[in-house]
Design a protein around this nucleic acid. Sequence first.
DNA 1: CATGAATGAGACTTCATTCAT
DNA 2: CATGAATGAAGTCTCATTCAT
Lengths: 199, 199, 199, 199
Amino acid sequence: MLLSIIFADMKPRDPQKIERIHQVTLTLVSEIGLAGLTMSKIGKAAKLGMGTIYTYFESKEEIINSLYQFLKRKHAEEVYVNFDENQSFTANFRAIFEIFFHNCYHQEEEYFFLEQCRTSHFLTLDSIVLEEAAFARINALLDEGKAEKAIKNIANDLLIGFLMGSVQGFLAQLRRQDLPLTKARTEEALALCLDAIKS
Amino acid sequence: MLLSIIFADMKPRDPQKIERIHQVTLTLVSEIGLAGLTMSKIGKAAKLGMGTIYTYFESKEEIINSLYQFLKRKHAEEVYVNFDENQSFTANFRAIFEIFFHNCYHQEEEYFFLEQCRTSHFLTLDSIVLEEAAFARINALLDEGKAEKAIKNIANDLLIGFLMGSVQGFLAQLRRQDLPLTKARTEEALALCLDAIKS
Amino acid sequence: MLLSIIFADMKPRDPQKIERIHQVTLTLVSEIGLAGLTMSKIGKAAKLGMGTIYTYFESKEEIINSLYQFLKRKHAEEVYVNFDENQSFTANFRAIFEIFFHNCYHQEEEYFFLEQCRTSHFLTLDSIVLEEAAFARINALLDEGKAEKAIKNIANDLLIGFLMGSVQGFLAQLRRQDLPLTKARTEEALALCLDAIKS
Amino acid sequence: MLLSIIFADMKPRDPQKIERIHQVTLTLVSEIGLAGLTMSKIGKAAKLGMGTIYTYFESKEEIINSLYQFLKRKHAEEVYVNFDENQSFTANFRAIFEIFFHNCYHQEEEYFFLEQCRTSHFLTLDSIVLEEAAFARINALLDEGKAEKAIKNIANDLLIGFLMGSVQGFLAQLRRQDLPLTKARTEEALALCLDAIKS
DNA sequence: CATGAATGAGACTTCATTCAT
DNA sequence: CATGAATGAAGTCTCATTCAT
């Protein structure tokens, strides 16, 4: 009747609700871990009925993967904001590094969520594969560095794994000791990374 | 007083069973993840009745922590087998690095289990604290390196975090692409690490 | 803050179900004893899924205590229906006695449940404490009797314990021999009680 | 061989062990309740292997019933120690009453155990029936009282139920308030009982 | 489309009893 | 006969998902 007409032009899916579910999931995981995450907690925190959540996501797994992919893409974009093809290799490396370093530290909830996912067997194949896509520009940058003989001739994937692992290991220690992220420490870490890869 | 007698811990009899439970847990976690681990799966895999397991461990949590601590200690020891106080800094660094690198790659099940535990909310305080103990000799080695002005003057914890993270990131890539661990790659990684920290 | 929202109690919706769970629990305990009571039996008897019960009660213990307190309050009220402050001591004593006597006999399930609870280690403190509240008017009545020198000057608690115990002992015998509760027997028991306490 | 000869004349059943199991069961039940009683707790407390216990008792139920019957008989005997057929009704009533009263209060463990059993569905028929046997002499005493027109003409069973219930109710209150058992209180209770039944 | 009570499979854990030593 | 480790059925409780309103 009337109601159906009135609501007919409403979007069948309210993107706000998706965002709310994402946000709530992120916060919950940071508070109780991925293992402690339950659908009813998501529902309560998002102030949505269980059924509503299932109109937006087919399953708990889908919520997790959807958020995972969203964050992955977001992080991949953010990291390049100061990237400029006209800059030197070192300048671009620093540009990327500084944001990655800064974000890893300050967007702790998000990186914590991603880490929990990675060790969780919740991720579907398309989430796992996603990884690669983000690295196009970094690959190009590293190739450029190699062409300039500025960096060691090691497979890009390995270099990227090395660099990301090292940053995360470094920051994990920082957090474990409640140390703030200072300019000096950023420079220390950058120096470690640059010295590592330079030829 | 009766009560105190009754609630005294049961003494397990067959140390083989503890080992079997550990082994089975390790394998199961590598197959189905820590979140998928259930007591009945452990029982079935170890060919023990559910109740038997509870003769040896008070809870699932205790199995996990017990295995975690066992592996931590084992790894901490292994890494030093070629360490020799009379060697140079670089020689000792290489000695430790090579084993750590090799073990991280080949004892994948064990390192995977430890990683799963670290992000799991299953670890008890004594498991978490354990971490520190293992690093005594590495700390000494790094101090020596700093005294020789061989390496950068950065806090040991951060260096260790950096190095372990970088090795694990490097190896994660290797595995993701099913690449074998060759002598050449070990040297590559060692070079990356040494160049990173040298002053 | 999210946490506080999440862990807020679920509000049950259907008060009928609470009643049904109470009723079924009462019947089950009379058939199989409190020790034989299991959640799955409650579920089956109430024709509710196991999980549903946990929407209304947090635990088995809570079901038991909830029913215990409900019955306690119900009995405490019932016993006073013919109580009238303008009546004489003896008339009021008789008024209370007759209903208590009658109810103890005919609401066997309920009194059996309460007795099982009392010896069970299931009762929480608030259930145990509840006891006292019910006796306010009886205390007043006994005080009145003492003032009139109608009854012995013995502490009210002891008198109440004596009277309730004696009635229950008397009725237990009646039931053991499948004897019906007649007017004559009620008078016999009343006479025993009145003669006991009169000074 | 030799051993079997040497031990051949040993009693196959060591009565000491039975006693120890009884004793330990009694204590355990008073500490943790009948519901908390487990075979392994009995074993630990009695310092006997589980198997040993099963050579003396077929089941947990048998231990409980065996102890129940033992205590019932013991109590039935004890109560008559000052009974003397040549004494007056009142003297004998007092003789029995005082011991019963005293024992109910001071052998709390034993009476607690019996009460737990009574509400437990553990008792076998022969334990339940046992009740009756103990009352032969009390029945005779009450008959004597009736013949003398000293007491009300109410069925003995009901009188006994009334009297035992009243004593236990009275003492339960005493214990609930941590009141000591004094001579005065014993006399109070005796007066209540005697006045109740006297014609 | 929104809701959240209902569901039941499955998780962890206990314990009476057995049986190999 | 003594032992106590081994067993597995059964208990309590959780939670992803559904469906009637």
